[in-house]
Design a protein around this nucleic acid. Structure first.
Lengths: 249, 249
DNA sequence: AAACTGTCCACTGTCTGCAGTTTTAGTATT
DNA sequence: AATACTAAAACTGCAGACAGTGGACAGTTT
C-alpha cells in the first residue's frame, strides 16, 4: 500500500479540524445563537453521545471555552453557560470602544484604496441585506466589518481581544432575543464610520465609531434588568443554580 | 460536629485544584520563567511521566494554553512554545498602553484613599526590593501594581485582557534574559504614575503611565532582532523547526 | 413541620489502550 | 559521500472504562 505523496497535503485540507475544534465551534454556535441559555449546564457525556464521539474531545473543547471565559466551571459539578448582568454589558461595551478605537488609530495610517473599498462593500451588503430583510446576513456583515478593521490594524493582540469581545457580544444579544435596532438603521449607522475612515481623519473616525458603538450599547443595555452597577463586584452572576448554598445562620 | 460557618471558604482552600489546572500553572511558570524556550516542543507523554500522571490532564492544560495563544499547535505534530518577533513586541506593548490607559480612566474616579495607599505601598516595596537587590520581589511587585490598577477599574474585560498581556510580556522578557533597566530606575519609574493618580488628574495619570510603558517597551524592543514591522503578516514566527518540509521533486 | 442522616444515581476527573501519522534511524543506491 | 528509500520508533488523537464526588430523595429524629 504505497502511500501517495499528496496524501499528507490532501489530508490537511480535509481533516483540518480536530474533533475538539469541531466541538468547540459547535458549542460556540450554540452559545452565540442562543440555543444554549445562561445558566444551562453542559453535560459532557450526553454531548459526547449526541455527537457520537468519546468524552475526551468534548472535555478539551469545554475546558477551553471555560478558560476563555465563555463558560464558568464549578469543580466536580460541571460547566455552565455564564449569566450576564448589566455590569457585564457595560464592561464589554466600554472595553469594546477602547479596543476598536485603538484599532482605528493603528489601521487608518496603513489603509490603502482597496481596503477602503472593502469596507464600503461591506456596508453596501449590510444595507442591501437590511432592505431585503435578511437579518442573518446583516448581522454577519456587521461583524465582518468590525473584525476587518481590527485585522487592518495589523495588531494581533487587538485582533485577539476583539475576537473575545465579539463572541461575548453575540452571547449578550443572543439570549435576550431583542427587538434590536431597526435593521436599516443598524446598517446605515456604519456609513459615517466608513466615510470618516475614507476621509483619512483619525479623530473623526474614532468619534464616529464611538458614537456607533454607544448607540448599540444603549440598545443592549436597555435589555438588561437592574443588576447593579453599584453592586459589589462579587462574581455573583456566575453561580450555578444550586450553588446558592445556605450559609447557616 | 457542627460545621463552622466558614466551611465553604476552608473547603475552597483545601480541595486541591484539578490536575489540569496544576499542570497549567506548572507550564505557565516554565513559560514565563524562561525554563522553556521559544520553539521548544511540549511532549505530552514525557510531561505526563515526569509529573506522574496520565496524559489526559496534560492534554487539557496544553490545549488550553494553545487556545489562549501561549503555545502554537501543529496538528498531529504537537504543541510548541511561540517564537516572538519584533512585531510581537510592538503589538503587545502598544496594546498594553491602550488597555492600561483605559484602566486608569475607569479606575481613578472609583479610587478612594485606601486604594491610593495600596499603590503607594507597592511602589515602596519595589524601591526597597530594588535597593536590596531582590529582583524577584521587584518584578513581582511591579506586576502587582499594574494588575491592581486594572482591578480597580472594576472592568472584568480589562482585567482579563491584562492577564493575557501580562503573561505574554513575561514570556517576552523571560527568554531574552536581558540586562534590563537598572532595578532602582525601574522601581522609581512607577512613582510618577502613582503620584499622578493620587492627584486625581486623569490625563496626567494616563500620560505618566504611557511614558512609563514606552520606556519599558523601548528596553524590550532593543532586545529583538530586526524582524520587520513591514514584513507580511504571515504567522511566520510560529512554524516549528522541521516544518520546513521538502517539496518533493 | 423542619432538620438531619443515609442511600442511590449521575457525572466529572482520571487512567489505560489502540490506531494512524509523523519523525527518525538505518539501508540501499547512484 | 550524498541522496533516495524503507522500516522502526515515537507521538498525537481518540475511545472506552473506572473510581470518587456531589446532588437528590426518602426515611428518621427532634
Amino acid at each position: 500500500m504505497s502511500r501517495l505523496p499528496e496524501t499528507g497535503a490532501v489530508q490537511r485540507l480535509i481533516d483540518t479540524l480536530s474533533l475538539s475544534d469541531q466541538v468547540q465551534h459547535y458549542l460556540l454556535d450554540a452559545l452565540t445563537s442562543g440555543r444554549l441559555r445562561p445558566g444551562d449546564r453542559i453535560n459532557e457525556a450526553e454531548l459526547a453521545r449526541t455527537l457520537g464521539i468519546s468524552r475526551n474531545p468534548v472535555r478539551e473543547a469545554v475546558s477551553g471555552l471555560a478558560q476563555r471565559g465563555f463558560l464558568v466551571s464549578a469543580p466536580r459539578r460541571g460547566h455552565f453557560l455564564r449569566r450576564f448582568t448589566r455590569q457585564d454589558v457595560d464592561d464589554v461595551f466600554s472595553f469594546r470602544i477602547c479596543v476598536e478605537s485603538f484599532a482605528i488609530r493603528q489601521a487608518l495610517p496603513r489603509m490603502r484604496r482597496p481596503d477602503h473599498d472593502d469596507l464600503a462593500r461591506l456596508v453596501e451588503r449590510m444595507i442591501a441585506a437590511a432592505r431585503a430583510g435578511r437579518l442573518a446576513e446583516l448581522h454577519q456583515a456587521d461583524m465582518a466589518l468590525h473584525r476587518r478593521i481590527c485585522e487592518l490594524s495589523g495588531n494581533r493582540q487587538t485582533l485577539r481581544a476583539h475576537e473575545g469581545i465579539d463572541t461575548e457580544v453575540q452571547m449578550l444579544i443572543a439570549y435576550v432575543d431583542l427587538e434590536r435596532e431597526p435593521p436599516l438603521h443598524s446598517a446605515l449607522a456604519h456609513l459615517p464610520v466608513v466615510e470618516a475612515l475614507a476621509s483619512g481623519d483619525v479623530e473623526r473616525s474614532v468619534t464616529a465609531m464611538q458614537h456607533h458603538l454607544e448607540t448599540t450599547w444603549a440598545f443592549v443595555h436597555r435589555m438588561y434588568g437592574r443588576t447593579g452597577r453599584g453592586e459589589p463586584l462579587i462574581d455573583a452572576g456566575d453561580v450555578p443554580p444550586s450553588q446558592v448554598r445556605r450559609i447557616r445562620g
